[in-house]
Simulated scan of single mutants.
Amino acid sequence: MRMTVFRRRMAEEFGEVRSEMLARDHVFAALGGRTADEALEAGLDAKRVWQAVCDAFDVPAERR
């Protein structure tokens, strides 16, 4: 998954402002205690980060 796809899916699911806040501020245990932005900066695959977000916020399977 490309970073642009990740950002687009975040915005579609949570809205522009909230998606930016979640990526910047929410710490995910599944990402080693990092935020989505930190995980991406550390080189984790965007697909893995998206899956962690989906799991944490119970995003329905059809939108994952």
Results as ranks from 00 to 15, higher is better:
residue 43 G to A: 10
residue 50 W to L: 12
residue 56 A to I: 00
residue 18 R to E: 05
residue 33 G to K: 06
residue 32 G to L: 12
residue 53 V to G: 07
residue 58 D to P: 03
residue 49 V to P: 12
residue 22 L to K: 05
residue 5 V to C: 00
residue 42 A to K: 11
residue 54 C to F: 02
residue 7 R to E: 13
residue 55 D to R: 10
residue 8 R to F: 00
residue 38 E to R: 11
residue 7 R to N: 12
residue 43 G to F: 13
residue 21 M to E: 14
residue 25 D to F: 10
residue 46 A to T: 01
residue 58 D to H: 12
residue 16 E to L: 04
residue 57 F to I: 01
residue 4 T to G: 07
residue 11 A to K: 08
residue 62 E to A: 12
residue 22 L to S: 03
residue 55 D to A: 12
residue 42 A to Y: 13
residue 5 V to S: 03
residue 59 V to P: 11
residue 28 F to V: 06
residue 51 Q to H: 13
residue 25 D to K: 04
residue 16 E to F: 07
residue 49 V to W: 09
residue 7 R to C: 06
residue 56 A to V: 00
residue 31 L to M: 09
residue 4 T to E: 15
residue 43 G to Q: 10
residue 62 E to N: 10
residue 5 V to K: 01
residue 30 A to P: 13
residue 40 L to H: 02
residue 53 V to W: 03
residue 18 R to N: 06
residue 30 A to M: 10
residue 53 V to H: 05
residue 55 D to E: 14
residue 15 G to Q: 04
residue 35 T to N: 07
residue 30 A to D: 14
residue 55 D to Y: 01
residue 25 D to H: 13
residue 41 E to P: 06
residue 33 G to M: 08
residue 7 R to M: 08
residue 23 A to Y: 00
residue 25 D to I: 00
residue 28 F to P: 09
residue 15 G to E: 00
residue 35 T to G: 08
residue 40 L to K: 01
residue 10 M to R: 05
residue 33 G to E: 10
residue 51 Q to D: 15
residue 39 A to E: 08
residue 25 D to C: 13
residue 30 A to V: 02
residue 34 R to L: 13
residue 30 A to R: 15
residue 61 A to V: 04
residue 38 E to K: 04
residue 54 C to V: 02
residue 11 A to Y: 03
residue 41 E to I: 10
residue 38 E to G: 14
residue 39 A to R: 06
